[in-house]
Computed example of a mutant assay.
Amino acid sequence: MALIHPRSLERWQEWQNSRHRARQIKHTVTGVFRRRGDEAASSAPGFVLHSREGDAGPRLLIGLDSTSPTSRASLLTALPYVRRGVDVLAPAGVDLPELSGSDWTHQNVAIPQAVLRGLGIGSVITLGWHLEVGRIVHEWALAEEISGAVVQHGALTPFAPPLPPRITLLAWSDADAEFYRSGRQDIETRAVGSQLLWQAAHESEDTPADLEERPVFLGQMHGAELSRRITAGAATTFCRAENALYRPHPAETDALSRVAHSVMARRGIEFQDSAIPLHELRGPVVGVFSTGVLEAAVRGLPAWVYGPRTPTWVHEFWDRYGMRTWGGDPTPAPVQPADEPSRLIAQILEGAG
């Protein structure tokens, strides 16, 4: 199976907007009240351009929409290996400690396109163009005929957003590259590995020999890919059968997720504090299609997937990543590249532009 929308970002957004209607209505209503109560702030510039000087030649532009650990691991960990000048466009008000040193300057901008043209940028890189900063960066780069790249930052399902036109995809593997490309001829691919998993593998020596026995089930009710009937149902069935702890995803804060949590608690399921970092887990890990299963496996923890009545694409997903189902041998640790993915990404970017 390939992407459901391999080319049209608009059709993908329509599909995304059709999911979890109640959550979107809540966000729309709260957004209206937030705008009414913060009209003065709305006139302030919405972006910050962080800049660092470097070797002579074309500069690199990084478009960053999120400060999540996966976003920062995928994009900002390459900075120590980049010798050319770098600009990072990000939303205003986000905390980016990687850009806080004396080498960096910071400029508030309202219309990024008006500022970018005079910087001497020769290449751009993002996690995609499905969010605001990424869309700005890639549309500008296409108009200016500047080379672009996208870094894969998570395990891929058929519901991943389509890639921007005429970019180089820096994928975790050749299999992921072909899956994400989905037959498009305007996309070049390079397999560089996953920085997230590479970091997890190099932290695995801290895994204790005396592992806890009680499994932890990773929540995914927030995801648009599967209905809560499947994700909450799998979690409830597994936790009750195996006396497992349920770990809510940090995004499980909407009303429907909270109702599901209450029902699970009434059925005797205990919860793990999701504030505990994943890398601090010390026991078996189970999920439906979570990247956390791969992170646990690469750290040396026993890890499985579990999902009764899941659609065919989920089983294809498990096969592509070598995930093993509960009841058999645990998921083997994903093979890691010889060199750090961020270093490889920097080398590719240094050769672009």
Rank of each mutant, 00 (worst) to 15 (best):
P215R: 10
I187E: 03
G183M: 07
A201D: 06
H202Q: 10
L196F: 11
G193Q: 02
A191P: 00
A177G: 07
Q220N: 10
H202N: 10
Q220M: 10
R181D: 00
F217C: 02
E205P: 11
R181C: 03
L211I: 06
D174F: 14
Y180I: 13
L169D: 03
I167N: 01
L211E: 09
L196M: 15
D210H: 14
Q199W: 12
Q195A: 03
F179A: 07
D210T: 12
A201K: 04
E203D: 13
W172C: 09
R181S: 02
D176M: 09
R184Y: 00
Y180W: 12
A171P: 00
H202T: 02
I187R: 01
A200E: 11
R181E: 01
R184M: 01
E205H: 15
L218M: 08
W198M: 03
F217D: 03
D176E: 08
Q199H: 14
A175M: 09
R190K: 13
L197N: 07
S194V: 00
I167E: 04
A200S: 09
T168W: 03
S204R: 08
Q220A: 13
Q199T: 15
I187C: 02
I187K: 05
A177E: 00
W198D: 08
R214L: 09
A201M: 06
S173T: 07
G219H: 07
E213S: 15
T168Q: 08
S194C: 03
R184E: 04
E203S: 15
A191N: 05
L196K: 14
L211A: 08
L197W: 11
A171Y: 01
W198S: 06
Y180V: 12
D206K: 15
V216F: 03
A200V: 05
H202F: 10
W198Q: 06
Q185P: 14
R181L: 02
Q199C: 13
D174G: 14
Q220W: 06
P215V: 04
R190I: 10
T189C: 09
D206M: 15
R214Q: 13
W172R: 12
A209D: 14
I187P: 07
I167L: 02
A209I: 13
R214T: 06
L197K: 07
L196G: 15
A200G: 10
H202P: 04
R214N: 03
D206E: 15
A209F: 11
A177T: 05
G219L: 07
P208K: 07
I167P: 05
S204E: 05
D186L: 08
L211N: 12
L218G: 05
E203T: 12
W172I: 08
L170S: 01
W198L: 02
D176V: 06
F179D: 00
G183Q: 10
A191M: 10
D186F: 07
R166D: 06
Q199V: 14
R184N: 05
S204D: 08
E203W: 14
A171I: 08
G219F: 04
A191L: 12
A191I: 12
R190N: 13
